[in-house]
Write a protein that binds this DNA or RNA. Structure first.
Lengths: 370, 370
DNA sequence: CTGAAAGCGCTTACAG
DNA sequence: CTGAAAGCGCTTACAG
């Protein structure tokens, strides 16, 4: 299909000037600039780094001459050399436990990355995505044979679940990092920016109680993630305080039809579902089963789709500020890496609050509805 | 901010541990590894770079000891230093002319990044996203004050449009890079992986002709991008060959209602629209105007939405293999960076072919339909 | 087999 | 004001 382009390129290479023998691009260096401008290499550096230092003042005439040569040659200082010389490499690593970019339907990280990119741009750092760590069984290992974390000045950790031992090892190593999502491991020494799921879930529970519900059902994920525990905790505490209990079941999404049958026989008036996708599926199952939502069954989602799906239903749900999560994580990491350590100290563990969206799937219960 | 690193480091050295004076983690160096393993720094380097050279063979016992220390310390060679010393970092840069991650509705890069990530994982390279270059007026500048391209071994360039001068400068600099999308600049010396829009558009034009259409209208983008020209070229050549002409208009999407009025008075039987989003809008405008699609007006989109939108219409359209584009670009860049230059030479300019999707918006024309 | 040494391109005290 | 020099952390001939 593209066989002929090949030929074109060969021709180009042959007469293009660059020898095939040398892979090494010839780089313009400060020494060359210095020669051309008739100054020392150090002076070029001084001009470039614009030292306004009173002790190191370069006459305008010289400075102009050097700058002119730099312009003419389109010279750019080698970042690697600058970095080695101690100017820092302004590199923030991003380690995702799963693929960072949407594969199949998984699109968990995108909004986080959007926030991260914006913040990275603001503070002028580049982002290093650790894609060289292979994804095995859906997970990347933080510490593997050829760990390259140190390529970056510090690192952001993203993932639903993180291995506690790895996390502990990482804090112990003194490497600056920030987890996205609350992490309890390592005796609370993990710096993170998380979402206050407990509070938001509690508010949602309160809404249901105030609507008159008394029969609760909660279908949550089997993950052992903090975020799952937080939601459960928020729900339980609010319901318990009001004197209610809640039926609970776990799903990984593969058995939703069966789950629906169990829910149905439990006869709740309101159903809390951790995963937004599951909420959609269950709502469809309910409707297909002749149960109208929310008239006969209210459904509350404890999360939301990353982006609008085809599903038209505007669930009563909670909405995590994912972009903000990303940008705040960058800010915290930056602070940890370069912070002055003085009174402006940022808390190393932050929870951002979560919005409750009223939606249309919560209504007052109808007695004996299901 | 970094000016006093020297000083800070001294402090650290003096008391042998983490001083309060600096948050800066003390970097593990080969010298420390060497000390811990009881070998010379050069030996550590030798072990790391796995020289199987017969002249430089290190006893397994020593090698193992060194490797163990490296594992324990999670040491990783400083990429900047490696670069300076003349080796690669297994680092592929990604330069996007706009924000890489979806901001607002723009989601142009995501599928490309998905493909790139997969390929990067396969060949074991990390991805360096150049987010430090600020986006000004929606565009990032490749060559700006503090250009850091050289931190990576090579770079992928992504963007609808690229500045020809910048591209020329980049080839001239001998820095290995691959553009995603066909680029004509620099006398055809730009390595790229592009999409064969011309061929696919021509096929679509043929379909329309075969359906009996004779009145064509083409609404395309005002971008000066190669991809826009390719589509136009594919459409024109096919129509011209069949003895037809085509009405043409440009839009940036802000004036679609007006565009529709003009289209309407031109009375085409088939409307080609470059942008998928515009196609959706125009279809709605047509329907709202009492023109039924495709019975009275066929609409063909020369692109598609990145992901399924709410829009239910299954357009007759072309579909670019964006993930493949990403992964092939990585493969090509890898080849350019590490290629042997022998007979297995990959073409430096590749076009991948584009799928035509039949859809439901192309039908035989009805005489005097509009 | 392994260490000492040169050098990559820069920044920044430190001397003239 | 400006140059000579040390040093950043590494790789790689080159000697032991």
């Amino acid at each position: 299909m593209y066989g002929n382009t090949h030929h074109q390129f060969r021709l180009n290479e042959e007469n293009g000037g660059g020898t095939v023998a040398t892979n090494r691009p010839e780089r313009v260096t400060q020494r060359m600039i210095a020669e051309l401008a008739g100054v020392s290499q150090a002076t070029v550096s001084l001009v470039l780094n614009g030292k306004t230092d009173s002790t190191t003042r370069i006459p305008d005439e010289t400075r102009e001459r050097v700058l002119q040569v730099i312009r003419d040659t389109t010279y750019v200082a080698d970042p690697a050399a600058r970095r080695l010389a101690g100017v820092g490499n302004s590199l923030i690593g991003i380690f995702t436990y799963e693929h960072a970019f949407p594969h199949e339907s998984s699109d968990f990280y995108t909004p986080l990355l959007t926030g991260i990119e914006g913040a990275a741009e603001q503070i002028g750092v580049d982002l290093l995505m650790f894609t060289s760590a292979p994804v095995v069984q859906g997970r990347r290992r933080l510490f593997h044979e050829n760990n390259r974390l140190r390529l970056a000045d510090g690192c952001l950790l993203l993932g639903r679940e993180m291995d506690a031992d790895e996390l502990t090892r990482l804090v112990d190593s003194n490497y600056p990092f920030v987890a996205i999502g609350r992490r309890d491991a390592a005796d609370g020494r993990i710096p993170y920016v998380g979402v206050d799921y407990a509070a938001a879930t509690a508010r949602l529970a309160r809404l249901a109680i105030e609507s008159g519900h008394e029969q609760f059902y909660y279908l949550h994920l089997s993950y052992d993630a903090e975020s799952t525990r937080d939601r459960k905790e928020g729900l339980n505490s609010e319901l318990t305080a009001a004197g209610f209990t809640v039926d609970t079941a776990v799903t990984d999404g593969s058995d939703l039809a069966a789950a629906w049958q169990r829910i149905r026989s439990a006869r709740p008036t309101v159903l809390f579902v951790e995963d937004a996708g599951h909420a959609e599926a269950l709502r469809d199952l309910a409707v297909a089963d002749g149960v109208s939502v929310p008239a006969e069954l209210s459904i509350i989602a404890l999360g939301e789709r990353t982006r609008p799906s085809g599903h038209a239903v505007d669930f009563t749900r909670l909405s995590a500020p994912r972009e903000e999560l990303g940008s705040r994580a960058v800010a915290l990491l930056d602070h940890i890496m370069n912070g002055t350590g003085d009174s402006t100290e940022l808390p190393h563990q932050q929870l951002v609050s979560c919005t409750v969206i009223a939606g249309t799937t919560l209504a007052a219960p109808r007695v004996g509805s299901i």
